[in-house]
Amino acid sequence: MNRRTWIHAWLMLLPAFVFLIAFTHLPAVTTLIDSFWTTGKGRRAAVFTGLGNYRKMLEDPIFIKAMVNSAVYAAITIPASILLSLAMALLVHRSFRGVSLMRMAFFTPTVLPLIAVANIWLFFYAPGFGLIDQIRLVVGLPSANYVGQPDTALYAVAAVTIWKEAGFFMIFFLAALQTIPQSLREAAAIEGCGRWTFFRLVTLPLIMPTTLFVSVNAVINAFRLVDHVFVMTKGGPDSATMLLLYYIFETGFRFWDTAYAAALTVVLIAILSVVGIGQFFLADRRVHYK
């Protein structure tokens, strides 16, 4: 390639580089640097503490609680939203009357902003006059305060995430299902293969790449989607719904302990990188059907 082409290539790439460096790479590097310092206040300058912020995490009960909560939250929302979306995709991957209406109904939660969704669900959960409580009263059960009790609050929040995400993932599964050639189904029918066997031996392997893509997204979202926590619980009661990203926000912008928030961010990025890279490398070998 001659010089001119190189210059052209760099010029074309320049705008993207500028934005990527200014808004992604530089902040990431400064976050890493900040995490080794204390938070500077007007009256006290920042001092270098090395791993001080990271040591503090090990003794911080709310951080540990947030890690446990995030793990539980991920363990519930990831498989549940994937299974639900696959089930919904299989259901609407046929033609029957009203199929487009049903597809639309499944997809609607995806279109709504999470803040609006959280407000709707807050009304569902409201003790006394909420939707769920009114149903409970009809069948004679006592009133329940789902988001106000520490033993149910995290599940109440997780349910919203699943409801919100499943419709989005369904679209990917639906697209994948539609690429499976009809001839395979006919061949299987001639061989006398049952529906479950066909699903297990043909459909599932063929949609594996989509499953990988969806599960990577589900993992990222399990750490990223916290908007509804702001509306529904603010991390309470007693940190029962404290998730890692919400704790970062609280530390950084409510407590103004920006150095500790930077260290927490580094931990979050490390977790996401390990999980993301691991998923691609480990799963990659078994994903593509040969």
């Binding site: 807050l122 003790p127 009133s143 305060n145 988001v147 106000g148 009790q149 309470g236 009661p237």
Partner: peptide, 10 residues
């Protein structure tokens, strides 16, 4: 009083 955390908005 109802048990649990009671919402301000409600």
């Amino acid at each position: 009083m109802a048990p649990g955390i009671l919402d301000w908005g409600g």
